[in-house]
Simulated assay, not measured.
Amino acid sequence: MKKLVVAAFALGLSLSVPAQTDFRSISFQEAVNAARQEQKMVFIDFYTDWCGPCKKMARETFPQKKVGEYMNKNFVCLKLNAEKEGKELAARFEVKAYPTFVILDTNEKVQADLKGFMDGDTFIAKVKAGLNPECSPERMAERYQAGERTPELVNNYAFHMMEQRKEKEGFEIIDGYFNSLSDAQRLDKANVFLFTRYTMSIDEPKSRFMVEHRNEFDASVKEDIADRISRLYRAKAVTYFSGYQLRSNLYKEEEYLALKKEIFDLGLDKKYKYAPMFRLIEGRLTCDDDAYVAMCAKEYDSLEELDRSLLIMNLTRLIKTEDPAILKKMSEFIRTHLREMAPSCISVASRALDDIESRMNKK
């Protein structure tokens, strides 16, 4: 059965409905009693109506099959609005940020306290680590300094470093571990986190290894590997599509053409519409501003939904002009499509529109 994916880069829906996290409609005391009877712990998701990361957890993480299976097996789960029915419990457990996830034993003692949005793999790993005394920050440091290099420790310790905003130290742990492994060890599914969690660019050594050996990973993780490869290539393509490479004087034709060739060679264009994106990237190099605005209008409907928003949000980076006629066309193009954009993108697009129209009105 395929995983249910509600994220922006969804690859498709399974015909069967996967397991989801079972948040029960019961009281706190009923949850504690149920946990005693079922030999589980109590998990509480404290959220608010206005919390964006809370909604993202509900939309993207808790519905995942692997998350649901893990949570339902180990916890009696509650979802409480910290400003409404969960207000007293939120105060009792000193909840001050959202979302906050509190795990209690059947004596109502806090065993773990986690905060913020996490993807499925990260969430499961953080819950497990939070309940494991061997994964406390102090104990992890001791184990690492003593020379332990198990996949679980490396993953949890590096992630802890990054949560403390020590990204450099975190990636030194990850890269040192990756470099110490043989090819066979890198392909072990216990080490798949190196690729699915800690690859930031398609150009780094871990990513290149992942691409070159993509068909050699265990069947149980191939979908995750394929998804990560797809995301990394698109992220690199977006640096060209958004105008970043061009405006930062980083554009090199041979690198762009190599990226384009790899995307087609890997068949990534079969699941994501890259052709209109590439036409616009290349059009920006050959068209004047007036022709490029017209090209944006022509290609807009051919783009993936995410790329439509990106085009509008980056239009003022792509087109640097003070020509009133071109500014007017840019304004008309954005206004035509503003209502179609995702709410999270509208504010950025609106600022771009205000900038364009303020310059128009000065002429």
Rank of each mutant, 00 (worst) to 15 (best):
L4F: 13
V5Q: 13
L13P: 00
S16H: 12
F23D: 00
S25F: 15
E30L: 07
F46I: 08
W50S: 07
F75M: 05
L78V: 02
L80M: 06
N81V: 06
K87A: 14
R92A: 09
P99M: 08
V102P: 02
D105Q: 02
Q111H: 09
A112G: 01
D121C: 05
F123H: 06
A125S: 11
V127Y: 00
V127N: 02
L131A: 01
P133T: 08
R143Q: 07
Y144A: 02
Q145H: 13
E148A: 03
L153A: 04
N155L: 14
A158W: 04
M162C: 04
M162G: 04
E172Q: 11
E172M: 04
I174Q: 03
D175N: 07
N179I: 08
R186A: 07
R186Q: 04
L187G: 01
F193K: 01
F195V: 04
T196I: 12
I202Q: 15
D203K: 14
R208M: 10
M210T: 02
N215Y: 12
E216C: 10
D218Y: 12
R231Q: 13
R231V: 11
A235Y: 10
G243P: 02
G243A: 08
Q245R: 13
L246F: 15
L246K: 15
K252D: 10
K261Q: 14
K261G: 11
E262C: 09
I263D: 08
G267S: 06
D269P: 10
K271D: 11
Y272S: 06
Y272D: 03
I281A: 13
D290S: 12
L303R: 00
D307C: 01
L310Y: 12
I312S: 09
N314S: 09
K329I: 01
M330G: 07
E332V: 03
F333E: 00
A342K: 15
S347L: 14
S347P: 09
R351F: 11
S358K: 12
